[in-house]
Design a protein around this nucleic acid. Structure first.
Lengths: 144, 144
DNA sequence: GTGAATGCAAAACCTTTGCAACTGG
DNA sequence: CCAGTTGCAAAGGTTTTGCATTCAC
């Protein structure tokens, strides 16, 4: 579980910009997210993080995730008030929530689609972001 | 706080279809939602409901809201794991979450936009629904 | 050295549940 | 009647907080 150099530099820069410190835990939590991009919950990140950093605490995982979200390196996605799921994919994309398994999938969006969606906003609404979230089922023959 | 006849019939039909009973509380909770379409939380619905039905309980409000959502008469919307907000608008629309006030607004969508958004789904993903949720700020001059 | 971040346990928040009493069909 | 629903209080799942300790700069 090693954070790639590129990601490490991006993290350090983002932390610096926000006046925050680089810590082993923050690096490690980001590494966990990047290693397996299956939108884990905080609890799942904690379980994975512990395997190579035994002393990390659940509260710290929550803190680190919030920090990463605040720095714009990670997105938090939530369905029906279940646990948050964390996504380090910085490209514009949507999410699909499988009601059978609870899993969350990234859905690529055509270039410019979100911009055209944002055009529906009436005057006076200034969007910082828009989340497009599908919920449904994956076809049985594709379920792994 | 009176449930309009049309809504009452729709409710009774939806409950019947689902094998559920009509109760004063279910009617009242729907009436509260329709009276002021500002996407109240369960707690807010409870406060409003109490003013004309003193004996209703918070648990019953939660139950009724879940029933209404289950019947398709109401949508639950959620931002950043805060309380759910409840919306009786059955037309296709998006939501806008104001980060300053926490308020939720309905955003009309052009006919067919959601269908075209659903077309981005790869094979194997079968969407039952899609939620388009903006977050941002309302322009100051419009803030009420 | 010093303020920020961590780790722990306890608290907080929102929602659901168990169960006795009630009620709609 | 009697299964479904309510109302209450207690429990549940997820996240946040207070505070002493440790660490990054």
């Amino acid at each position: 579980m090693e954070l790639p150099e590129k990601a490490k530099q991006r993290l350090h820069k983002a932390l610096e910009v926000n006046g925050l410190r680089s810590t082993r835990q923050r690096e490690h939590v980001l590494a966990v997210l990047l290693a397996q991009r299956d939108h884990p919950t905080a609890e799942e990140v904690y379980e994975r993080a512990k395997s190579s950093m035994a002393s990390i605490s659940l509260a710290t995982v929550y803190n680190c995730l919030e920090t990463l979200v605040g720095c714009g390196l990670v997105r938090a996605v939530n369905f029906e008030r279940g646990s948050n799921h964390y996504c380090p994919n910085l490209a514009e994309h949507a999410h699909f929530h499988c009601k059978d398994t609870g899993r969350v999938y990234d859905i690529d969006l055509p270039e410019g689609l979100l911009d055209s969606v944002k055009k529906v906003l009436p005057e006076g609404f200034q969007a910082e972001g828009v989340e497009v979230a599908f919920q449904g089922h994956r076809a049985k023959e594709i379920l792994s």
